[in-house]
């Protein structure tokens, strides 16, 4: 029996797979590799696998992590390759290795935000964004688990945000707190809408680029 971690990419079509559907998709992909996922004991055995930090639907990522247990003894070598033959478009395993570091050491996540402006980026947008995201308090509305709207201050969860202007898009390279509580980078766009309504973009694309520990190194 081995406890493993899978590093994978979730992009394009697969970015629309919801969290529960993603678990199901992996559950079904494993039998194709010849590996047997360990099942829970009990009346309704279910496969033991979990996604470390579920990605919101519609966002893409090159650094997703999934933990699972297989009944065989293995260090994970070759599993990523085998899985890739049986995954939907946009889902791609990069590496599989024994799960060693505890998940609590995952501190931050890095993401790029693309704010698209179809008629060109308004002048000075990057500067205004820099000013907004250096404020001590940035309030946005967030839906709670009870489906109510709550106002939260995202400033303490925002570690860093760098903005670059392109012709029809402003790219943000941001680092935000990953958990307890985590910050969905999409909320930065909501802050723009609230505080700088004239800079509301036509579309926002979010892509997770790295998971980091508290010293800023890759968490794997």
């Amino acid at each position: 029996m081995s406890k493993l971690r899978l590093l994978f990419v979730k992009e394009a079509q697969s970015s629309y797979i919801s969290h529960l559907d993603l678990l199901r998709t992996f559950q079904r992909a494993f039998p194709r590799t010849g590996l047997e996922i360990r099942h829970s004991q009990g009346y309704h055995p279910h496969p033991l696998l979990s996604i470390v930090l579920p990605l919101p639907v519609g966002q893409s990522s090159v650094c997703e992590l999934m933990e699972f247990e297989v009944t065989q003894e293995t260090d994970g070598a070759g599993i990523a390759e085998k899985l890739n033959g049986g995954l939907p478009a946009g889902l791609r395993a990069l590496d599989c290795y024994p799960a060693e570091r505890p998940v609590r050491e995952l501190a931050d996540l890095r993401a790029t935000l693309e704010l698209e402006y179809d008629c060109g980026v308004p002048a000075g947008t990057a500067d205004q964004l820099r000013e907004l995201f250096s404020r001590p308090e940035i309030l946005v509305f967030k839906r709670t688990k009870r489906k109510e709207l709550a106002e939260v201050d995202i400033a303490p969860m925002l570690r860093r945000a760098d903005w670059t202007e392109q012709t029809t898009c402003v790219r943000g390279d941001v680092v935000v707190q990953a958990q307890n509580p985590g910050l969905n980078p999409q909320l930065l766009a909501q802050a723009v809408e609230r505080y700088l309504p004239e800079l509301t973009p036509d579309f926002v694309r979010v892509r997770r680029t790295a998971l980091l520990d508290d010293s800023g190194r890759d968490f794997r």
Partner: peptide
């Protein structure tokens, strides 16, 4: 399509790309 999908229910049913498609 990319711009529509965030606004509709169950967007995964409109994108294809499933295993064996």
């Amino acid at each position: 399509l990319e711009r529509i999908l965030p606004r509709v229910q169950k967007p995964a049913r409109y994108v294809g790309g499933e295993y064996n498609a």
